[in-house]
Amino acid sequence: MKFALNIGFSRIAIELKQLLRDREATFWTLAFPIVLMVIFGSVFRNQTLGTLEITFSQYFVAGMIASGMLYTSFQNLAISIPQERDEGALKRLQGLPMPKTSYFIGKIGLVFVTFVGQTIVLIITGILFFGIDLPTEPSAWWRFTWISLLGLVSCTLLGIAFSSVPKSGKGASAVATPIVLVLQFTSGVFFFFGDLPSWMQNFASLFPLKWLTQGMRSVFLPPEAAVLEIAGSFESARTAQVLLLWLVIAAVLATVTFRWNRRGEN
């Protein structure tokens, strides 16, 4: 176990080094959600929600921070792991005395650092342009921390599991991106969740993103915004349960379905 951890940390360092040196990839990872945030945020800046003094822009900023979690973990890995498979990187690792867990640890670390970087930029943009306030309550920050951790780890493992689906690195983006988009549309990122048809709300409630967006609203919107939620509250306990369940499912899926080689090559 100690061995797996040591190599895992060594993998985090090497993964980060490779990402940060690829300046183009780093730039777009950070820039894309900001571009989206600025466009959507600017369109709906005067549209208030209900009778509250909360604009859809603010609602959307919380949703984008949650989406950033899905971008940096699920979408990123579902696309980059098939590419690594094509490049021969995974086959190399398979031939080395490296525990599979170390590879997963490396990915979780990579995702974690990328998420922190992206979230800092998104929060600053939200504060400067869309009137988001940083929470002052320690309890809100505590919520932010556990929601992020649970969300990141489960979506990272889901990304690892999903990386076995695309046949090649070339097609990976075409397979993974629509899933993220559909979840964003149905989970209350691009639209106000309360306006969605109930079947769509029920569908979204099965997946992590709905709970992550709701969780981020509980952090970045004032407490009175809870009335905007379907349940009339931010459902912290429920969020924790759903995310934990996904974490277990994702860990099993990632361990069972992960493959070093392309399909048909064994």
Binding site: Q18, R21, E87, G88, A89, K91, G95, P97
Partner: peptide, 18 residues
Amino acid sequence: WRSRLGVVLQSAHDLGEL
């Protein structure tokens, strides 16, 4: 067992940035 083997594969083009 793996640690006693060395494998040089046919076509790897990974690690470019290192």
